[in-house]
Design a protein around this nucleic acid. Structure first.
Lengths: 255, 255
DNA sequence: GGTACTTCTAACATTTTTGATCAGAATTCC
DNA sequence: GGAATTCTGATCAAAAATGTTAGAAGTACC
């Protein structure tokens, strides 16, 4: 039985039964539990499954349909889910986090599994996704003027409100990264996000490989001031090597 | 059986049966009672369940208010739509209005047909409805802490934000009207609404006939300070007569 | 109130699960 | 074929989960 077959079978069994124990999987496939654990790590990091003590759980139906919905209109879903899984793992119990707008960050809040989080966001889609997370986290939506295209709140009101709080960690997405510049399409949204970053102890940027060496209109932050850049493991080693001069980069493979 | 699976099953059984004994849970899941107690501690700390001597109880109070909330959406629809239509007609072109939470006000923003409005609200359902209005009005959602039961934003953040703006008109709903008192169920939501009223040139209250002579927990405003009370035409003439001593009342029939 | 009974808490013992590491097996690539 | 890479299984210490007590606290009944 090939590894690929095994992964497929695991996915099939998990989606059918919702919960499965590592021991069951090992028995039905005739491999050691260690192997299953490694498989599950891989599936979990790819954002396809939720790892539990003793076994796995399928993504909730809500999350799945939500993801299918996104899949229809969004690109690079696999990469984004992978990045979302890593970003979600950076959060710790009892933290207050700012989460900016973006599909990747929607996937991230869907996957959060820590205890007692307080989530602050100015993105309506992120807020809606967080609301469906089985953990009933405390949610704070930063209000203000509403931009229909992106579903975000911006402007003086939003900025003041965001600025009145402090965060353990901030997670933001970008449209492009070019040298030390983080770029986005909209001035006001960029400014709002930079406030979220400023008020956070630890500043995290999520960006799939396609964002590197890609420019956009407005430069809203410097990569030098970012603590952690999360991207997917398919990013070219040369690119990663180059950007490591600016900040610490985290991908799927290494720690 | 995985731990998570067990927790899910406990939640399911508790919500179905309202109360379950620790011993029952232990027996049906084939684990020791100590394990169940630890599970219950966890669920209780997460605020999902109420721990009692001998067993657990579902969140009866929340459940009830939530039921009331959903029930509220269902009843007196015709009256609410009638009131909503009148309230919507009070708005004029180019105005900035504050709209509080409530089913009636959802109907109202759906019906708005004026030009160039700016709508401020702290209710997510109202916001969502306004978003679907074919006129692309400027929408400002007042953010803050989120109350899942009612879908509203409240707290210091929301209050500050609301207080920083001025409105041509404010529209709020109530749970009850008794003499000159406007009553609602929740202190914080009441306070937020009173700020919206304070900062409005013209203060409008919408209330169907069933709200008259009905008391509730928190008194958040005085009917003396309200400019216009909108209700449905089936309200008894005696009641209308009585309440006209406090403010101007508008119904479906007369102007 | 007092007694008998049940349930709870806390501490410790036991079992299960995990992640890290390493050596051997399988696979791929030249 | 042989080297390099990837995959797998075994071992083991640490962590997590569970079970087992004994004494404390709560409840019910007289």
């Amino acid at each position: 039985m090939l590894k690929r077959e095994r992964l497929d079978l695991i996915m099939k069994m998990v989606t059918e039964q919702n919960f499965i124990a590592v021991s069951d999987l090992a028995k039905t496939m005739n491999v050691s539990e260690m192997t299953i654990r490694r498989d599950l790590d891989e599936l979990s990091k790819a954002g396809k499954v939720i790892r539990l003590h003793g076994g796995v759980q399928a993504l909730s139906l809500q999350m799945k349909t939500e993801q299918n919905f996104h899949e229809k209109r969004e690109i690079h879903i696999a990469e984004k889910k992978e990045i979302a899984a890593i970003a979600a793992s950076l959060v710790e119990d009892n933290e207050t986090i700012y989460v900016g707008p973006g599909t990747t960050l929607e996937f991230m809040v869907a996957r959060l599994d820590q205890e007692n989080l307080r989530i602050v966001t100015n993105s309506l889609p992120v807020f809606e996704t967080a609301r469906k997370n089985p953990h009933n986290y405390q949610l704070i939506l930063v209000g203000g003027s509403y931009r229909r295209i992106s579903g975000t709140f911006y402007g003086a009101l939003a900025n003041d409100e965001l600025d009145s709080m402090n965060y353990d960690k901030a997670f933001v997405g970008v449209n492009g990264i070019s040298d030390a510049e983080l770029l986005t399409a909209d001035i006001e949204e960029g400014q709002t996000q930079s406030i979220g970053l400023n008020n956070a102890q630890k500043k995290v940027v999520v960006a799939d490989m396609y964002k590197f060496n890609h420019r956009d209109f407005y430069q809203f932050y410097s990569l030098y001031d970012i603590d952690e850049l999360v991207t997917n493991k398919q990013a070219s080693p040369d690119v990663l090597e180059y950007y490591r001069q600016y900040t610490s980069i985290r991908t799927g493979i290494d720690s």
